[in-house]
């Protein structure tokens, strides 16, 4: 009892000896420490109880995001389209990346839209904690709600872009195929991966303030490595004469490349048509499960430290 205030407080507490440490007093009345990280299963349950907040927050952000720009949500579609147009001219026509790829415009756009979804989720995830400090310092909720809401926001926007993508793929001459029904499956797996990746990035972004500056370079490198505007198979094995195993590693060790590959196999069927090979499916599922589990665990480990400093 070195602090005079403690002694005062104890005296107020009804003169219970005046010397009783406050910690004991707290224990006697069953008061708990304000800061404590819940166990993992409890955390997941709390998160589930907050599902309405997560959804409303995502929708609200979507509504308010484009409320000030003239073209509004159209930008969601315009951005990847404009990007794809630039890549089409640069890599497809000028540099000849087109190679022997069947239906190059559909190939490019499918890759672009699929990659953009993951890229945006990762970028948004990195800002989800560091950009919401005032909210974190004001209210109680499982912090994972924020990165989750950000990924859901991207998912809501994706619905529009995927509609546009289907239309464009049709225009480029692809027939409507039964395999299109697999599209939601791939999107679901990709979403799970994005949630996990967003959670990891959220924790990293909360502690590393320079991450947001660095992220554009990382995602651009990732874009080039994912074979969005060229075929990994053709470049690695055909042009560079590297062994097939190198191409396999580039396909399966890179989740973005796996999802892009699966999406292309499903949507572009006019070259004879085939569903994605088992190895691609395995890779898609593995990355989804791994990222989700690791992401939640990794994010939860620092739960009580978000918002500090």
């Amino acid at each position: 009892m070195s602090q005079p205030e403690s002694a005062v407080a104890d005296a107020q507490a009804g003169g219970r000896g005046g010397q009783e440490p406050l910690a004991k007093l707290a224990a006697r009345y069953g008061l708990r420490r304000a800061i404590a990280r819940p166990r993992f299963p409890v955390y997941v349950r709390q998160l589930w109880e907050r599902r309405h907040f997560i959804l409303t927050y995502a929708t609200s952000r979507n509504v308010s995001k484009y409320s000030s720009s003239a073209l509004g949500q159209l930008w969601q579609v315009l951005t990847p389209l404009l990007n794809a147009a630039i890549y089409y001219v640069m890599f497809g026509l000028v540099l000849g990346g087109k190679g022997h790829i069947h239906n190059y415009p559909a190939f490019l756009l499918t890759g672009m839209f699929t990659f953009t979804y993951t890229q945006r989720s990762v970028t948004a995830g990195a800002k989800s904690i560091s950009g919401n400090l005032s909210l974190i310092r004001a209210l109680h909720f499982p912090r994972a709600s924020l990165p989750l809401a950000y990924t859901i926001q991207e998912l809501q926007q994706l619905a529009i872009s995927m509609g546009v993508l289907l239309v464009i793929v049709l225009i480029t001459g692809e027939p409507i195929a039964l395999t299109w029904l697999l599209m939601p499956v791939v999107l679901l797996l990709q979403t799970l991966f994005n949630v996990g990746a967003g959670l990891v990035m959220a924790r990293l972004g909360a502690s590393m303030r320079d991450l947001n500056q660095l992220l554009p370079f990382i995602t651009r490198t990732w874009l080039y490595a994912s074979g969005v505007f060229f075929s990994i198979q053709e470049k690695v094995v055909g042009t560079a004469h590297l062994p097939q195993s190198v191409a396999d590693v580039m396909y399966y060790a890179n989740p973005a490349a796996s999802y892009i590959e699966a999406m292309r196999d499903i949507l572009i069927t006019s070259d004879g048509g085939h569903t994605p090979p088992d190895s691609v499916w395995i890779s898609c599922v593995f990355w989804a499960v791994f990222a989700l589990c690791f992401g939640f665990w990794y994010f939860w480990r620092a739960e009580e430290r978000y918002g500090r400093g």
Binding site: A23, A34, S64, N132, A138, L139
Partner: peptide, 19 residues
């Protein structure tokens, strides 16, 4: 340390609202 009974809430919902 801070010991509490139940969850104290800051009247600070404004951070969640969007203008």
């Amino acid at each position: 340390a801070v010991y509490t009974d139940g969850q104290p809430s800051l009247l600070g919902v404004n951070a969640a609202l969007m203008r």
